[in-house]
Structure formats: C-alpha cells, structure tokens
C-alpha cells in the first residue's frame, strides 16, 4: 500500500476521533460545532484517500461528493450559528444544558 495513503488514512482516523472526543467533552455549542466540522473533515480525508489519488488518475466521483460535502458543511454551520445566536438571545448562555438546568432549579424551589 502506498505509504502516503496510509499516512492520510491515519490522520483521517485520528482527526475523527479527536472531533468525536471534543464533541462529547465540551459544553459550549461553538466548540461542539467546530468538533462536528473536524469529524466531517476527517471523513472527507478518508473518502479522498480511498479514492486512490495517490497512484493513477484520481477518481472524480469521491472528489465531487466531498466538494458537495464541503458546501453542505458550510451551510449547516451557518444555520447552526444562526441557531446559536438565537439560543443565546433566549437564555443568555451558549451551552445547551444551561437553560434546562435553570428551569429544573426553579421547579425545585
């Protein structure tokens, strides 16, 4: 196997793992968005590495799909940022659980 392909495969896997870990560990919505984008980037890297770009003519189908994926990722990120701003307006926090916890606290009293 091409050593470059192996390097990019490992990078894709590690970046995906780091993104998943960050998504699970962080409470801030902005950082969770960044981690989701990291995971997406890792999978794109996997797709193109599997497309055999290392030797021979590159396969255009995964490249077109990843191009579509990049545009969809930016659309989803833009929408999620608009949601984040609205969430912040409503509850004055940028964490998903804060409003729910505040409601629970007031119910206990």
């Amino acid at each position: 196997m091409n050593p470059s392909a192996l390097i990019y495969l490992l990078t894709a896997a590690i970046v995906f793992g780091i993104g998943l870990h960050g998504l699970l560990q962080s409470r801030q919505i902005l950082r969770q968005l960044l981690c989701i984008n990291l995971m997406g980037g890792g999978i794109f890297l996997l797709l193109i590495t599997l497309g055999g770009g290392a030797d021979g003519p590159p396969d255009p189908v995964p490249q077109a799909m990843v191009l579509t994926g990049i545009v969809i990722a930016v659309s989803a990120t833009a929408f999620a940022l608009a949601l984040l701003l609205r969430w912040h307006e409503l509850g004055d926090s940028t964490e998903l659980d804060a409003v729910a916890n505040a409601d629970a606290n007031t119910h206990d009293e």
């Binding site: 495969l9 490992l10 894709a12 896997a13 590690i14 995906f16 793992g17 780091i18 998943l20 870990h21 699970l24 560990q25 962080s26 409470r27 801030q28 902005l30 950082r31 890792g42 999978i43 996997l46 590495t49 599997l50 940028t94 964490e95 659980d97 804060a98 916890n101």
Partner: peptide, 29 residues
Amino acid sequence: PVESEQSAPSMWLTLPTAGAASLLVVIIG
C-alpha cells in the same frame, strides 16, 4: 463564553469511545 466544568461526561467514557471510532475508521480504510 467560558467552558463550564460541570456535567461533562467522564473521560473514561469518552476517550475509549473516540478511540473506538478512530479504530473503526482505520479498519474501514
């Protein structure tokens, strides 16, 4: 925005999950 310290799931849970996901990606590739 400041990262709040409470209510994050335990490292013992998330690190193996992330590690398993990476391993899955490596195996698929």
